[in-house]
Design a protein around this nucleic acid. Structure first.
Length: 270
DNA sequence: CTAAGGACCTGTCGGC
DNA sequence: TGCCGACAGGTCCTTA
């Protein structure tokens, strides 16, 4: 479900309701997510105030004086902000209940998500080797060119590699490559300089626009307030195999790259 | 070091 | 209607 725009949409939805609030208690119903939810959270977090709800890559970070809670939504996770006491549904694994009667509830059917903890001043090991944020100046045409140089791996795999740039998932990788006229299977080292410049710009553009639209709802993504995203109405290639290209009317093709589906226009993308 | 594949887990959908 | 395989928005880890 969540790529960076969906995570950012979630962050913006919950931050105003959680920042400045004090935690009353924590509920762990199903600790077996991608990694076990640390049981110490049950005693560490109550009494703490959430100072800031931030984001790094696709991790949401809840900062307190005792440390930072990391939330990752994996493939199928989502967060809802509910009144405390709302009945529990299947796959509701984790709650943060605040003193003012709110409940931040994590639901994640596939359990690829994670709830982790970092001590104050410490960077969690999973965050330590991440590349730059796509919407920051630390990611640009020059950094992309440096990473692509001499590499045989496909350009699509490269832009989805979190060491290169974070937050580019399967949907937006496909879309950015279409907008840039680059075939997803092209070797990274063989993509022209001007095309890499376009690609860096289009990654920023497509993510920015998707955030503006509240993310992409394919099956079930809902923001924390229950509203869907609207970006799927602007997808040019993702999920459009067999349909006409919106630019040239050629039939959109679908291939497999590393267990993931890629969609492209055979005429517009070389 | 690079590149490719498997692993984790549940739900849904299409085909027979 | 029921069963089975394929596939789904992520990403870490192992293998070659």
């Amino acid at each position: 479900m969540p790529e960076l725009p969906e995570v950012e949409t979630t962050r913006r939805g919950i931050a105003p309701h959680l920042e400045g609030q004090r935690i009353e208690r924590i509920v762990i119903r199903r600790p077996a997510l991608r990694w076990p939810i640390p049981p110490a959270l049950l005693t560490t977090l109550p009494g703490q105030t959430i100072h800031l709800v931030a984001r790094r890559a696709k991790y949401l970070l809840l900062h307190t004086d005792a440390g930072t809670l990391l939330l990752h939504l994996g493939m199928s996770g989502h967060l809802r902000l509910l009144p405390a006491g709302t009945p529990v549904l299947t796959h509701d694994h984790f709650d943060i209940i605040t003193v003012n009667g709110q409940c931040l509830r994590l639901n994640d059917p596939r359990r690829f998500g994670a709830v982790l903890w970092a001590e104050p001043g410490q960077t969690h090991p999973l965050l330590a080797t991440l590349g730059p944020e796509p919407l920051s100046e630390q990611f640009n045409a020059d950094t992309l060119k440096a990473c692509a140089k001499g590499r045989k791996t496909s350009i699509k795999a490269l832009i989805m590699d979190n060491h290169m740039v974070v937050g580019v998932g399967n949907i937006y990788a496909n879309e950015a490559l279409f907008l840039s006229g680059i075939h997803p299977a092209q070797a990274s080292g063989k993509v022209s300089g001007p095309n890499l410049e376009r690609l860096a710009e289009n990654i920023k553009q497509v993510l920015t626009e998707a955030i503006r639209q509240g993310g992409t709802t394919l099956r079930d993504f809902l923001a924390s307030d229950g509203k869907p995203g609207y970006f799927q109405q602007q997808l040019s290639v993702y999920g459009r195999a067999g349909q006409p290209c919106l630019v040239c009317s050629s039939e959109i093709q679908q291939i497999r790259q590393g267990q993931r589906s890629s969609f492209f226009c055979p005429h517009c993308q070389k």
